[in-house]
């Protein structure tokens, strides 16, 4: 049990470092801002109590806020992700089928993981980008930013599943 927690602690440190030191430095254009750190919340065990998922989500987002000088922005967006995670898990797996304890690509297959992460990342990015501009002027410009960034984020997240978390 303790080993699992250490594993997740390392995962937390890893996703924060990748986000802050690599992806946040990738200044491609305003339209492509990939976010990776939500992977920590995506990969939490299915049996994690929901209140704990929420608290961890808020905390992870807040860590990113610390580095980007955006108080509350990532924290609020990730909390939303943490809240919709459980319904999405059941939605994607379909009624009656049992979900494996660890919602990773290896355990559930590419198709399952892709749908799971697209829905959650889209919810997160939608909230994040609209809260950042904080207005509906330029609605479509922000929408394009959301869609492009979601594609890139999901790509990075899925890629990481192939490269690093294979075992």
């Amino acid at each position: 049990m303790a080993r699992i927690w250490i594993k997740y602690l390392l995962l937390y440190i890893f996703v924060v470092l990748v986000q802050v030191l690599v992806l946040n430095q990738l200044q491609v254009s305003g339209y492509l801002n990939p976010y990776f750190y939500m992977l920590f919340i995506l990969l939490l065990p299915v049996s994690t109590p929901r209140y704990l998922v929420l608290l961890l989500a808020f905390f992870t987002g807040f860590t990113i806020d610390f580095f980007t000088d955006t108080p509350g922005l990532h924290a609020a967006a990730t909390t939303l992700l943490g809240y919709v995670r459980t319904p999405v898990l059941y939605l994607v797996s379909g009624r009656g089928s049992d979900i494996s304890e660890y919602p990773s690509l290896k355990n559930n297959g590419l198709r399952w993981f892709l749908i799971y992460s697209v829905i959650l990342v889209l919810a997160h990015h939608f909230f994040l980008f609209y809260m950042e501009v904080f207005s509906f002027t330029g609605f479509f410009r922000t929408l394009i930013r959301v869609i492009f960034s979601t594609i890139l984020s999901v790509f990075v997240i899925v890629l990481s599943q192939f490269l690093i978390f294979r075992e």
Partner: peptide, 10 residues
């Protein structure tokens, strides 16, 4: 509660 905290910060 957490969302409210987040919004207050924002």
């Amino acid at each position: 509660f957490l969302e409210i905290v987040g919004f207050i910060l924002i």
